[in-house]
Simulated scan of single mutants.
Amino acid sequence: MKSLSTIVAVALTTMAVVVSSATAAPALAAPARTQGGAGTLLWEDQFNGYGGPDPAKWGFQTGRWGASSGEQQYYTDSWNNANQSNGSLNITARRENPPDRKQAPYNFTSARVVSMYKQSATPPVRIEASIKMPRAQGLLPAFWTLGMQPGGEYSWPSQGEVDIVEIPGMYGPSFNLHGPARSNPNQDVKAGGSMNPVDSGFHTYRIDWLPTSITWFVDGIARYSLNQAQYEAKGGNWTAFSGTWPHYILLNVAVGNNWTGKTLNSTPYPQTMSVDWLRVSRL
């Protein structure tokens, strides 16, 4: 998906092992809850403040994150790109002169809001949010996690990435997992599914994440599931998803990507992703 700009160049020099679903996954049964403390709220944000996101829960990753994977935006910490208003966190991509003064086609700003070093999640856990996500050619709004691998917090893909939901361009919600191959921590083993586009309103996107499996939901309906045995059968190393280390949460709107293609001159801007609420609960 959105590989970290400081490390993705290394990953691109290796042969990625890619396993993805070409069709929408069927609805699946929710995994059983574990005993003891099930349903306990660990942390949440209702985004009822005003101004920037709550600094006790969120920070920013600024600059040209994702540039090596074809992204066109400069991420800022400006309220112009990320702010709380009307009970939502609003992340807005804009066609404008960026702080580094790069010209077209890199003349976009956006925000990458992260809970790194502030809040985290470790399985067994439920992570969910109500989000209104834009659809437009070349756009990639996302709600996802990255692993806090000790000493490898920026070591993609070995740290592990869970894409709770992405909207690639004009397509429907996509659910993906990125992690390392057993034989090479720099090889990306990807597995995922997708579904038809949803309407333009708010939808609840969620994962139920156990130490040996992850199930993705949209509006309470399971759409894709992956377990440790299936991932390892593809050559992947499940360690990053086992609970060995926690993950932090990211919310961002990328512009352009090697996956989605460049945004078009005809694509209207600004484009905003609004998050009504976000919750992390123990399963």
Rank of each mutant, 00 (worst) to 15 (best):
P246Q: 12
D219R: 08
P31H: 01
S274L: 03
I131R: 02
S174A: 09
W43N: 03
Q46E: 15
N81L: 08
D100P: 07
D45F: 06
R223W: 06
V255C: 13
V189I: 05
M273N: 10
L251W: 06
A129G: 15
P157T: 00
Y171H: 13
N258Y: 15
A82W: 01
G87D: 14
A22R: 15
D100I: 06
L177K: 02
F175T: 10
A9D: 14
R182W: 03
A29N: 12
T215C: 00
R279D: 04
A56K: 15
D100Q: 09
G193F: 03
T260P: 11
S68W: 03
E232N: 11
A111Y: 11
A30P: 04
F175I: 07
V114N: 11
G160T: 08
Q103L: 03
T212L: 00
I7E: 13
R64F: 11
W65H: 14
S3D: 05
P168T: 09
K262A: 11
D100E: 09
I91F: 06
N80Q: 12
Q84D: 14
T145G: 10
L283M: 09
D208Y: 04
A222M: 00
V280M: 04
F108E: 05
N107V: 00
N265H: 02
T215Q: 03
V280Y: 05
W43D: 03
Y106Q: 11
L283T: 08
N107F: 01
G236S: 08
N252S: 13
L42A: 00
Q271G: 07
I167K: 02
G59C: 13
N227H: 10
H203T: 07
N48L: 07
W58R: 13
A24C: 05
R101K: 13
V125F: 02
S20H: 13
G179V: 02
S194G: 07
S213M: 14
L264M: 13
Y74N: 08
E153I: 13
K57Q: 12
R135F: 02
L250E: 11
L251G: 05
K234V: 01
R33W: 02
G172H: 08
L42S: 01
G70F: 04
Y248A: 08
Q119K: 15
K57L: 07
V113Y: 09
F143T: 10
W245K: 12
S281L: 08
K132G: 11
I131C: 01
K234A: 08
N237Q: 14
A38W: 05
P31T: 03
L210Y: 10
S183P: 10
G147C: 04
S20T: 14
A67Y: 12
G152L: 07
Y224H: 12
A30S: 15
V218W: 04
H203M: 00
L210A: 11
A30L: 10
I167Y: 12
E232I: 04
R101T: 10
W259C: 03
G49C: 10
P124F: 00
A32F: 02
D100F: 06
F60Q: 05
A30Y: 08
A67F: 12
P268I: 01
R64A: 10
L41E: 15
A24H: 06
V19I: 02
D77C: 04
Q230I: 09
A56Q: 15
A29I: 04
L264F: 14
W65N: 15
S110R: 12
A229H: 11
S183Y: 15
P268V: 06
S85L: 09
